[in-house]
């Protein structure tokens, strides 16, 4: 049986790229708009489309339940906004996040925002092992600022470094979009799927 990955659909954007990419990595993908289904998921992907409050709107009723599942070790991957909602809250919105990563999401430093385009990620974590380079596609104006040691990778922008890769337990979060990062991103996604498989 292939790994079944549950992708959350917040109803605000196109999930085609991420679902297609996960399928290419050998996963079976289930897209859910009923967030109660996340509670039974074998592996969760929080995709990276939308704004903070709109994204949390559908997740909020299941906030405690989802966080408990993440704490219990269900493998999960957040992408961009899907990573930001793993924090306690954001300068971009007024709703609380899932609160799995301690800390908040803040407005980025930098003259030109959004931070848009390809940039490199520095990390020692095996999740990027075997990638041809460390260049990933970013598009965001906010970034996570954890108050616990969950940041495992950073990226430089306009002279400052920000957290671009997070991990706590079995829950990875990327500020970049692996599904938009060509062969490098596909390898990172494959590594995550392999990691999730190993937790079964």
């Amino acid at each position: 049986m292939p790994l079944k990955v549950t992708v959350t659909d917040y109803g605000v954007g196109n999930l085609y790229s991420i679902t297609r990419s996960l399928e290419r990595c050998g996963a079976e993908v289930e897209v859910v708009s009923d967030m109660s289904k996340v509670l039974d998921a074998e592996c969760i992907v929080f995709p990276g489309v939308g704004a903070f409050d709109r994204t949390m709107e559908k997740l909020l009723p299941y906030r405690d339940g989802i966080r408990s599942r993440l704490e219990a070790g269900v493998p999960a991957l957040g992408i961009c906004i899907g990573t930001q909602i793993l924090f306690e809250g954001s300068d971009e919105g007024s709703r609380p996040g899932l609160g799995f990563y301690r800390g908040r999401v803040v407005r980025m430093q930098g003259k030109v925002l959004p931070h848009m385009g390809w940039n490199s990620v520095e990390t020692d974590d095996p999740i990027l092992e075997g990638t041809p380079d460390r260049m990933f596609y970013f598009v965001h104006s906010y970034c996570g600022e954890p108050s616990e040691p969950v940041c495992i990778g950073t990226t430089e922008y306009e002279g400052a470094r920000f957290g671009s890769l997070f991990r706590k337990g079995n829950v990875y979060g990327t500020q970049f979009h692996p599904e938009k990062s060509s062969v490098t991103g596909m390898r990172a996604l494959k590594n995550f799927i392999d990691f999730a498989e190993a937790q079964r």
Binding site: Y16, S17, R20, S21, Y137, V139, E179, K180, S181, S182, V183, G185, M186
Partner: peptide
């Protein structure tokens, strides 16, 4: 666009 999006992994 949808045909292209199936096979493209850059924006």
């Amino acid at each position: 666009v949808s045909e292209t999006a199936k096979n493209l992994t850059v924006p």
